[in-house]
Design a protein around this nucleic acid. Sequence first.
DNA 1: TACCAATAATTAGTATGACAAATATATAAA
DNA 2: TTTATATATTTGTCATACTAATTATTGGTA
Lengths: 148, 148
Amino acid sequence: MTQEQFARYSFLLDRTARKVKQYAQQQFKSGDFDVTVDQWLVLKNLSENGHLSQTELANLVFKDHPTLTRILDLLCKKGYVERVPHPMDRRSFQLHLTETGLAKVSALRPQILEIREKAWENLSDSDFQEFKRILDTIYQNLGGQELE
Amino acid sequence: MTQEQFARYSFLLDRTARKVKQYAQQQFKSGDFDVTVDQWLVLKNLSENGHLSQTELANLVFKDHPTLTRILDLLCKKGYVERVPHPMDRRSFQLHLTETGLAKVSALRPQILEIREKAWENLSDSDFQEFKRILDTIYQNLGGQELE
DNA sequence: TACCAATAATTAGTATGACAAATATATAAA
DNA sequence: TTTATATATTTGTCATACTAATTATTGGTA
């Protein structure tokens, strides 16, 4: 395999990642989910972890701080999330879902799992293991930190 | 494997694609390449295909038309690309690289191949085949067209 | 010819992503 | 205590993505 052919991994990766996000976003839209794909990622992580600061949440979802600030602005405006002042540290906030936010997560979770399945048709569990291994290797090659 | 674990493919994919682009962009910047990663993709495809229209180019690089319009605006402003009116169809342009653009592609191509190699450390040719197979399957599952 | 649908490109609006810089607050060091 | 440094978050800027709408032009057809 030539170096040229091989270097297409970056193109294929980018193209597929965009397609996956685009597909999900279209389904979100046609189902009137009222959140974007990235907003959902934030909501989901908040529902699974209580009282995170923005920095902690940013590390969980691998988004940088400015991006997360803006996503949270939107989620607060929609009434799904609240920024509660941290009792000991006036620089930071504790994030938590509102009642509406909790209800939204419960309502959307099963529907979104279903949407996510579509991409994996014709692929197996062992394909997933391979896929994860390769993606994680690339991520670490480029200086990313391991997950847990 | 639970449905939940499996659905993380979208998270891993997005995270890795962003890391790959970010890494390349940092190298581009430290090397004073004067183009972004996406602008490079456009220049590269123009150098390999003469006299494309914007629609044809958009299909090659899998970007939508508004995005491509803006990338071309920047590349024209930088003097690497020119929009030449199509002789038979006044709606469209034929795109071509300027002398400067051609020189830029020649200068950058080998350096960029080198940058791209970093991600693939510890991975093999057969990993690449697996990776490509899985990415292409996902892409087609979500309604994307096959390549050639 | 006149009309109508399709096509090429652009514009507008919103969201995300990367990076740099600014602000406020906390903590450690002199 | 004063100063310096570090941390949490926000703001600003530019580039990319997606959608919808707009403009100009083409081609087919009544």
